[in-house]
């Protein structure tokens, strides 16, 4: 244990010391006009990509009389939080308390995301770094599994979940979510870049694969784990699960918000447009905040994790 920690600490220190002396790093010179062109391009693209978000935000801050002006104005003349207030008010009066559906979602997201990262990373490491009978076959299988359309696998999947007795429980969302190949494939690709020497050193000290995985591989591939986490978090968070869960009390927050936004809870006609706009922002804000926290974390650990062969 101590020796393993030492190997890892040495490795991280070596990378860090490089960062400490960053100013002395001799880099290829950047031309001034190159920088200007780059900045302008990024600014333009940034505006284009930010527009949908700004639009959604401005729509959610509009009072009713501004919401239906056409063409929609980005600037709101009388910004109001009424839509958010209505959103909260409606949620406070649902038949099943909203705390219940929030808890359901929290359970799915936390258990699902962490479980997926642990299970999939444990599988990604051997596939990325070792050759063993069948490893090639498994690798190919995983890439190709990403390419099959989900519409036609829905029915066999439903039958399996029914047979396993997971219908109407959160497990119907969580357990198949563990088997998402996207996160696994992402992690595997980053793990391929870990230098062999790092693991050999640990092996010589008698560490088993599992210990190497948790003490060396995982810390070193943090950027990939974080990216995979964001992906899987988002997919669990937005999963309404309405195909598998029928009891109202077992449904998640995404389902309630979806019903709300489509006017099924909050009334008919145009009266729900404001709530709908507010709910879009709220559903979007949660993964965004997680993303920002995690991404910031990536930046600070990046310098200590990027060593390649």
């Amino acid at each position: 244990m101590d020796i393993l920690n030492k190997i890892r600490a040495n490795y991280l220190k070596k990378k860090k010391s490089k960062l400490d002396f960053a100013p002395s790093v001799k880099k290829t010179p950047r031309s001034f006009w190159g920088n200007v062109a780059l900045g302008l391009f990024l600014l333009l693209m940034g505006l284009a990509f930010f527009f949908p978000v700004i639009y959604m935000l401005s729509q959610s801050l509009k009072p009713m009389n501004e919401m239906f002006i056409f063409p929609p104005r980005i600037l709101v003349s009388n910004p109001t939080f009424n839509n958010y207030r209505d959103f909260v008010n409606v949620l406070a009066n649902t038949v099943v308390p909203v705390t219940r559906s929030l808890f359901n979602s929290l359970f799915v997201v936390v258990v699902g995301s962490i479980g997926h990262i642990v299970i999939a990373s444990l599988c990604a490491y051997p596939l990325a770094k070792y050759k063993f009978p069948g490893s090639n076959f498994f690798n190919q299988l995983i890439v190709y599994s990403l390419m099959f359309n989900a519409t036609v696998t829905m029915i066999p999947n439903f039958l399996t979940i029914a047979r396993l007795g997971m219908l109407d429980t959160q497990w119907a969302i969580i357990i198949p979510g563990f088997a998402s190949t996207l996160g696994l494939y992402l992690m595997k690709n980053f793990m391929e870049q870990i230098p062999d020497s790092l693991m050999e050193a640990a092996q010589i000290d008698g560490a088993g694969y599992v210990r190497i995985h948790f003490l060396i591989v995982m810390p070193v591939t943090k950027p990939a784990l974080v990216t995979a986490f964001i992906l899987v978090f988002q997919s669990f968070w937005t999963n309404t699960g309405d195909r598998f869960i029928y009891t109202e009390a077992n449904k998640g927050f995404a389902y309630v918000v979806q019903q709300l936004a489509s006017g099924k809870i909050s009334g008919v006609g145009s009266s729900y447009a404001g709530i709908s706009a507010a709910s879009a922002i709220i559903m979007f804000a949660v993964p965004l905040i997680v993303f920002l926290i995690m991404q910031n974390n990536v930046v600070s650990t990046m310098a200590t994790s990027g060593m390649k062969e």
């Binding site: 599988c123 009978p133 599994s145 696998t153 999947n157 563990f178 088997a179 190949t181």
Partner: peptide
Amino acid sequence: SIPLYIMIAPFMILFAIFVVYPV
């Protein structure tokens, strides 16, 4: 490679049930 098989087993079993079999 038995330890390696054990490591990939949890994911691979779920993968077989929820991805390979439906495909």
